[in-house]
Design a protein around this nucleic acid. Structure first.
Lengths: 263, 263
DNA sequence: CGGGTGCTTGAATAGCGTCAACTCTGGTGG
DNA sequence: CCACCAGAGTTGACGCTATTCAAGCACCCG
């Protein structure tokens, strides 16, 4: 099954041969993958493990794959072989339904893991689409599993990674099920801010890689509502907005936005 | 930290001593736990593994614990030691927020796993509260982990279990973010129906263990809205309702409820 | 028998979605 | 270089859905 495909284009089979070629070329890149010198090591599931001098992680990394903006790393229904660590760029994960109902379930940036939705059934449950030209480390799951059986600490990290995703989704359910529109947008911005900060970037100034529509799909809102709430936060002096550039002016107040009355 | 406590009562320390005693008594029950004769074996993470004659699973099960209706199996903030397999009864999982905002993130019935929200941080991220008198198998996580390193198949099952929860939560995000009230209730009933069926019970007739308010919290709706939608489904002849007793009359139509127009 | 809880139903309201107009930007091709 | 177009974003007016508030019934338990 094809794993590479246009993201925004609805028609699937425009140039099958060429896409196949692109995929092969990408997967052939084996470059200089060295986990010990990776900038994302601290965040990666295979990051520095204190117990060992650690040439080990490299063993699980099969290579690097690049994905261009709008193309998919994998699609729902693709057979599951590997998980991926984002080296550079960013992705969105989208779950679909019959009759065009769709939901953006997550944004992944450098240091995040992708593909774990395929573990349970052996088939990916969502599409992972690059928001910009991106690259990932490919980790065949069978290799990762055997590494888990050998090295206790890596086993623990993988379990933590899976469980962390469960907790993250729980708070997203809280957001979707119980928060008002303004609160959702505020939480979204604070969350992004903290994630950039954890990666060594500025917490108060960053660029959105996604459109208003994508933010809306993630937050359970329409794009117009997202736009209105962003405007409102700006009018209230909590953020400064210029298109996709966001500056957070008052993080404390932003963090404390709640529905005014709540018993 | 206390792990046993009243569920519906807001005041925490009414009878600390007694609750501590209750907990100890419960944890002492070691009874006749035998995974090979367990009715839930097919659904359990430690269920029958074809590779081995399997006296092994028993090794990870430390004992049985009973939890009375309204009491908690664990609470957010409790230190994480074990995961649990529900033997009998049912639980709700609740995540909380400052200022009283809360969201029900899941219902767990016989065969489901509980407690995995504690793996990532070593501290439970939600409350697990019994909806009726219930009992669980206690599996200390360190035992489960070492079993994973020994037996490939159990490792695979545990990974599948964790990943399945991720996928399940993704579809709940789809529900919360993109579905109308009627659709949410319909999906909820179909899901419950299928889960009872997977456990050998009737798919078309079952009893809700939870209140309308709890269903509402799970679906991101108010209890009045849940009530109205249930009434509507009944008027449309898709289900028959008598309080908490539900009969599904037209599963196919129920499964196909969508927002009428969706481009 | 009284009081609490759960559930249903109605009427009014608020919040978000829908529709539409308009601007701005980036990319394409003449 | 400019005309053109498609997509992204903003804003306003209006409508609909779900919430809020309120009343009333059924049930359980002390």
């Amino acid at each position: 099954m094809l794993t590479e495909n246009g993201g925004s284009v609805p028609s699937r089979p425009p140039a099958l041969r060429e896409q196949r070629l692109v995929q092969t070329r990408e997967q052939r890149q084996r470059l200089d993958v060295d986990c010990n010198s990776c900038a994302m090591a601290q965040l990666c599931a295979l990051g520095p493990c204190d117990a060992q001098p650690c040439e080990r992680p490299n063993r699980a990394v099969h290579g690097v794959r690049t994905v261009r903006r709008g193309q998919s790393l994998y699609r729902a229904g693709d057979s599951f072989q590997s998980v991926y660590a984002v080296r550079a760029g960013s992705f969105k994960r989208v779950v679909m339904h019959r009759d065009g109902l769709e939901q953006l379930t997550g944004f992944d940036i450098a240091g995040d893991m992708l593909g774990i939705d395929g573990i349970s059934t052996g088939t990916h449950a969502c599409d992972a689409i690059a928001l910009e030209d991106s690259s990932v480390c490919v980790m065949p799951f069978v290799l990762l599993q055997s590494l888990c059986r050998e090295i206790k600490e890596i086993q623990h990290r993988v379990h933590q990674m899976l469980a962390a995703e469960i907790v993250r989704e729980s708070s997203q359910m809280l957001l979707l099920g119980a928060m008002m529109a303004e609160e959702r947008v505020a939480v979204f911005l604070v969350d992004l801010s903290e994630r950039w900060q954890a990666r060594g970037y500025s917490a108060c100034s960053f660029t959105l890689k996604m459109t208003r529509r994508e933010i809306g799909s993630y937050l359970g809102l329409k794009l117009e509502t997202v736009s209105r709430m962003i405007t409102k936060l700006q009018k209230d002096g909590l953020i400064a907005v210029n298109g996709k550039d966001i500056r957070i002016l008052d993080p404390d107040t932003l963090r404390n936005i709640t529905a005014a009355d709540r018993q």
